[in-house]
Simulated scan of single mutants.
Amino acid sequence: MKKTSFLTLLALICSVSFSFITSFSATATLMDKKAKPESKVKITQEKVTLKVAVASNFLATAKALTPAFEEQYKVSVQWINGASGSIYQQIKHGAPYDAFFSADKLRPEKLKASKHLLVNTVKPYTLGQLSLFSAKHPNMTLADIKNHPRNFPRIAIANPETAPYGLAAKAWLSEHGLWQAYKKSLIVGSNVGQTFQQVRTKAVDAGFVSSGQLVAHQLVTVPVPLKNPEQLLQYAGVLTNSKNAETAELLIDYFRTESVQLKLSELGYLPLSQSQLASNEAPENKLVTAEYN
């Protein structure tokens, strides 16, 4: 009887011990899982990529000056170029850009008024220069254009309706009474980038392009004096729907820094005045409103 009781007691102790060990093991496993998330869950921080629309004249310059900004802020900048007027229409129709670097003031101001650009981010970043360029006739001057129009009938300009540099070229031709003489034989490009390629490949006699394009390709500039130089005062702004608005504005401000303005003056552009750099608002830009006919 005593032997039987002893065996029963021993069995009960073993059963309790086994239950305790099993319960402890299960609890430890559960705690371990809570302490160590599953390896399938990975927390990663993706590198921000800014999609920036830029006027064709500024593309090569922008690409040359961007690496320092990308390194400083650990971001990537993707430049998409075109005529300012065309980009303006794209943004009006919802193009997913983060910022817009225009070749004029007019389009950014319109986009600000329609609330497509954040008001406080619209500001000037450089002042462009118009140049005459001829790959066919390297020694061509503005006097040749003015005095011998019949010798150079195929002159190229960017579309004055969409490209500020094309509008500036038309203004200069009109000012010197040459618009009617060249009007019928003009080769009109969709943007100043296309015009530059037409002239460089000698498809035309000469063309009006950006000084910045010529400097970027180590070509000689023939500056065209404009009656109103500020018509090429170039503005930028951050899109209202940008998910990277803060970083996009940093990019605009980067181009407005003293060091970058100095570099721009060496790359075919004119530096902004101190008053323009000190404020988001630059002096009023008297826009050329010549009719497109």
Rank of each mutant, 00 (worst) to 15 (best):
L264I: 04
K110E: 14
A99N: 01
K202A: 00
E230S: 10
P67I: 10
S76F: 09
P67D: 06
F133M: 00
L117F: 06
L232Q: 05
E291A: 14
L111C: 05
M140C: 06
A26E: 13
G207S: 00
Q274L: 15
F24A: 15
E230Q: 13
P37Y: 04
I187D: 01
L173H: 00
A11R: 08
N228W: 02
L173S: 01
A163K: 06
V54C: 04
L186T: 02
G94V: 07
I157G: 04
S185M: 04
V188L: 02
F101R: 01
S84F: 03
A163T: 09
I155D: 03
D104M: 11
Q274A: 13
G82K: 04
K286C: 10
L287P: 06
G189Y: 03
L142E: 02
G237Q: 02
D32K: 12
K263R: 13
L118Q: 12
L12M: 12
L264R: 04
N81V: 09
C14G: 14
Y235H: 02
E161Y: 05
I187M: 01
D32T: 08
I187Q: 01
L219P: 04
L233E: 09
V75I: 12
K42A: 15
L10H: 07
T61N: 11
S114P: 07
H176C: 01
A169V: 00
A62E: 08
S275N: 10
S134A: 00
N280Q: 11
T247M: 13
V188K: 00
K3R: 09
P164H: 07
G128F: 02
V199M: 01
T247H: 04
V188M: 00
Q261L: 10
E109F: 15
M140R: 00
K63P: 04
I145G: 00
G268V: 05
Y292H: 15
T29D: 11
Q274D: 14
T49S: 12
K112G: 10
Q276Y: 05
S76V: 07
F208T: 02
A11I: 05
W172A: 03
A99S: 04
L277H: 08
P164D: 03
Q276C: 14
G212S: 08
N191M: 10
A64R: 13
V119E: 15
N139T: 07
A83V: 03
K105T: 13
P153N: 05
L7Y: 09
N159T: 04
T66H: 07
L277K: 11
T66E: 05
V222G: 04
L117T: 03
K42Y: 10
I13R: 10
L251K: 08
Q194M: 15
N244S: 07
T141R: 01
A236S: 12
N244F: 08
L267C: 06
R107A: 13
V16K: 11
T247V: 06
Y165P: 02
P138Q: 02
L277E: 08
F6S: 06
L186H: 05
V75F: 03
R107P: 11
L270G: 08
T289D: 09
L178T: 03
G128L: 03
A64W: 05
L10R: 05
K112W: 07
I80Q: 12
P67L: 10
A60W: 08
E175W: 09
C14M: 15
P223L: 07
